[in-house]
Design a protein around this nucleic acid. Sequence first.
RNA 1: GCGAUCGUAGCUCAGCUGGUUAGAGCGCCGGUUUGUGGUACCGGAGGUCACGGGUUCGAGCCCCGUCGGUCGCCCCA
Length: 450
Amino acid sequence: MSTPPKTPDAIRGTQDIFGAEAEAFAHVVETFERVRKLYRFRRAEMPVFEKTAVFSRSLGETTDVVSKEMYSFEDRGGESLTLRPEFTAGIARAYLTNGWQQHAPLKLATHGPLFRYERPQKGRYRQFHQINAEILGAGEPQADVELLVMADQLLKELGVADGVSLHLNTLGDAPSREAWRVALIDYFRDHRESLSEDSQERLERNPLRILDSKDPRDKPFTEGAPKIDDYLSDEAQDFFGKVTQGLEAAGVAFARAPALVRGLDYYRHTAFEFVTDRLGAQGTVLGGGRYDGLIETLGGPHTPAVGWAAGIERLAMLVGAGGNVAEGKLDTAIIPLGEAAEKACIALAAALRRFGLVVEMSFRGNMKKRLGRANESGAEYAIIIGDNELAAGKALLRNLNTGVQTAQPITHFGKVPLSLLDGVEFGEPPDPGTNQVFDILTNSGKKDDS
RNA sequence: GCGAUCGUAGCUCAGCUGGUUAGAGCGCCGGUUUGUGGUACCGGAGGUCACGGGUUCGAGCCCCGUCGGUCGCCCCA
């Protein structure tokens, strides 16, 4: 008496992607790969896990993000490892440990799974996937511009640009950012009692975040809050000007978003998000910014860099909503009947696929079943070979749209487009050594004329 | 971590104020068609009603707990 084993559940917040969604997912990745090559971003592959320090140092040891939202564990040697929650820190580590400085300015693109220990909700999973682009070792605003223009082109080529807008801001250089921060704290402290509980908390930990609070109680005060523009140094102002001018030159539309901020200290200058209102609370489709301070936190030399990342699932949802991704269509279904015919059909399927046709060969069910499946698959033609046909060296070519079916010499398949054979009756196969394609073309010409 | 909401067949769902053998559509399998699809008709398989406890003569339905899904808050690298 044994009880059947219990099927283990999938891990919370993971997804099994299949069918149309998987096609949309692949479409996003393929489009990214194509576009990234247009800009000569070089492909990189990084490990999905790193020493925990790679992430904890760059993010700051004390933040919620590090203490609660990373997948960290000890390996058998007692070393603390973490499944990557983002690409940037791992890329920065690779940049330093592999001497990639020699390639600077280095344009890198990658994509793959990331892991965050969060409560799942729409567009948010514990294992999710991003596409990612970075330019390391480039302090020039042109790098920001190129990254943004590429992002814009990507979204347009994916067909999701409608309803998605680019929100752009600058956080200034380090002195500008700090002066602004102090001014914000002073300002909000005066209204402390009127702020939401969350924002009172934020005042201590992360005052910039009050600006994009969702609580209506905070709204009246965020409007009148100090603006970064009043604290920008000349250099920072000039930098941002070059970014916006570059976007205008490239024809990339953007909206200035003075409340768009970044929580971590290493961010400088440009911050941006492509945002939609079609994905519920998780409206950011692609986001990034300049992180000139990051590489130093990993013990490297001062290295300016800028990058962005976009959630593949979120993009796939937008792509899928447009209904423009379908599974690959079947051209031809091959239906063998009987063991001997099966062998001939395997050979025929291989030949047709080498020819470039999308072919499936059925191996289950009776004739009715097999034809039914062929029909459902959307195939245009079915090629049927039973033992009778095999003995005569023929196969049945059935047009599944018209229902017209003719017997054809097996040797014709794989050498002639099926559309030429469609509906045309042939006699004996051409003599060996003659040009079969030519014969068939002239034969079918005769038929058409008559 | 917090809140709301949901969990019935492979899928989408119905199931009345608690009342006998729990339903539909789709899908699957078979038949009308011994080797011919799309349409139609007929039949069939498939359910520990998420799990565990409780209330009740009686629970898919009410109560408590657990797990899971979804949506939102916090956070957002």
